[in-house]
Design a protein around this nucleic acid. Structure first.
Lengths: 343, 343
DNA sequence: TTGTAAGCGTTATCAA
DNA sequence: TTGATAACGCTTACAA
């Protein structure tokens, strides 16, 4: 059984070279001859060698850790659906790049202390992947002063010009527009949209803006009363018939801005004998796994979470390696519609 | 604006002492006089000092990281409900103890390479919190040989005698028994139980065993056909009327072994005009947040996830500090029933 | 192409 | 009670 705690010195001893040669070989330095390099790599593999993370980070190299900073409020059921899917994808790609994920909240829930600042001082991570819209300007500045890369994901920062960051978002405006266009193309003329109350973040405003644009493009008058925010939960969706019966009575399409709301609503509709999509057409947003479980299956806007995660991970790895870091890379990905049965 | 990268030497310079005095003071060594200790701590606070994690781990052996090892299959919607709640609690407690969480799968999904073995070699963590039942004996051994603590949480290990580990589980047998007793006390005599097909782990067998015990205690004959495994999803619960109509017709109570199955079932029942709890009583398991969203609200068995997380975190911190580590601590917590409307 | 040696920030050992 | 100093495992000038 091979030893734990193999060091480059152990390898050096076996290979009959100095430990710096081993270091260079394993780091693929061009200075080392192919012959010795291969020999050393073979020995390292055979001895099941891994670099000591602490030593590596001390001597000015890399920690092999990425901080994924999130907001605790996304831990709720319902809202968590999309974000937790995104995290799965992030880990998937980072693992392939031999990076570990330190997953944490931006700020201590009680003291408010910044975890970003702490990690920076502790020098525990090589970069920050931020899925949080309320990071302070001060923290963004600290990261930059420390020379570490940041990639903003999923949501726009509130306290920082997004132009200053590398970011990857879904085009929520297009998503809202797409959803609404789809309903219109299915013959809807009075379309209700349901943003969320519990998250006041930019993305829902964008979706609503896209909704308005689609109406306008199709010569449909926008009506303020057809925008009704509810919490992003199954139950609120289910109770919609109770909370706004008059509005629902005069509507032929609903664009729910999260799938879970639509899920609750579809159930209530079925119980009331309202036929979906015949009597009323419904579309959601996110393409969470539950969409296929609803009855009828929910038409929705797919957020390109895998692609987003892939881009963000590739980008942060590039930035860590100082590749193409002269300018920011900012992408806003088009979502696409997934047509199922509810429309 | 205070500097990032403050070292103990910087503090030493300001305080007019040696860096080793600073190290001792900040580590609360009893050798340092209260006066200098306070002075040094004040300076450290003022300079916003944090220990360099790499250096610390190189020198002593504290990384300030705990690995939380999980199984990707728990990332699915439905099954994730309970486990992701548990992770939230774990982070909650570990954060309070100034520990960061490295969250990762036990094994590389493609290569099968062990992340545990890698972390051990890299010396990246101070301990392992394992929420995974298929960790190899070899990996448990490696952890032990490395002298690091392991705490097993939520599920029994398959490849390791659980007696060898510190663990904290829910008493699934009692849970199954409690659930069944409750239905019996409500007058049910023909009780169906629904374990899961998609997770073959021990916990469901235990719940079923508890179910049997309760029947026996109450003089009710166990019938094989009243144990019907389905996947742990909303849809499978919903479709139960289609898949086993004859069985359902002759049953007066159902014990679903996950809440999400019950959720789907309740919806289907409502649509069929079956009154819950009048015609049929239903109980779930887990006490996931959705339980309050179901109609009627779901009676369920509450798994003490917060308590479990707290015990596990306290225990691993103790073990890291070499406190009370002569013997294993193993607790199996009683779940309790949460009676809502479905029974 | 490879080796020697300094240095990263901390803890721990030994002296004082 | 405190200070020098070595050591942890690695990277990286600088030398050879």
């Amino acid at each position: 059984m091979e030893n734990l705690k193999v060091t480059i010195k152990d390898i050096a001893a076996v290979a009959g070279v100095s430990h710096s040669t081993v270091s260079r070989a394993l780091n693929d330095s061009p200075q080392i001859s192919p012959g010795t390099k291969d020999k050393i790599k073979d020995i390292a593999r055979a001895m099941n060698f891994e670099f000591n993370a602490g030593a590596r980070s001390l001597s000015g190299r890399k920690t092999g850790n990425i901080a994924v900073v999130y907001q605790a409020k996304y831990d709720q059921f319902g809202s968590s659906l999309y974000v937790s899917q995104l995290f799965i994808e992030l880990r998937h790609f980072l693992e392939r790049m031999d990076m570990d994920v330190i997953l944490l909240e931006g700020y201590h829930p009680e003291t408010g202390a910044s975890n970003i600042s702490r990690l920076l001082r502790q020098q525990k991570v090589d970069g920050f992947l931020i899925v949080h819209n309320l990071i302070t300007k001060r923290d963004y500045d600290s990261i930059q002063r420390a020379g570490l890369p940041v990639v903003q994901l999923h949501m726009s920062p509130v306290f920082c010009q997004k132009e200053e960051l590398d970011y990857f978002f879904t085009d929520n405006f297009m998503g809202g527009r797409l959803a609404t266009e789809h309903l219109i193309s299915r013959g809807c003329r009075r379309i209700l949209t349901i943003p969320t109350n519990d998250f006041d973040s930019e993305e829902f405003k964008q979706r609503t803006a896209g909704y308005k644009q689609a109406l306008k493009d199709n010569g449909i008058q926008f009506e303020e009363e057809l925008v009704v925010g509810i919490d992003s939960t199954y139950l609120k969706g289910y109770q919609l018939f109770n909370s706004i019966p008059e509005i629902l009575a005069n509507v032929d399409g609903i664009f729910f801005q999260t799938d879970i709301q639509a899920f609750g609503f579809l159930t209530a509709a079925r119980e009331r004998g309202i036929r979906i999509p015949e009597d009323l057409k419904v579309i959601g947003f996110d393409d969470a796994p539950i969409c296929e479980s609803t009855i009828p299956q929910l038409t929705t806007i797919h957020q390109p979470r895998r692609k987003l995660a892939e881009l963000a991970c590739n980008r942060i790895i590039d930035l860590i390696s100082k590749r193409n870091n002269e300018s920011r890379i900012q992408e806003v990905l088009f979502p696409h519609i997934v047509i199922r049965e509810s429309s």
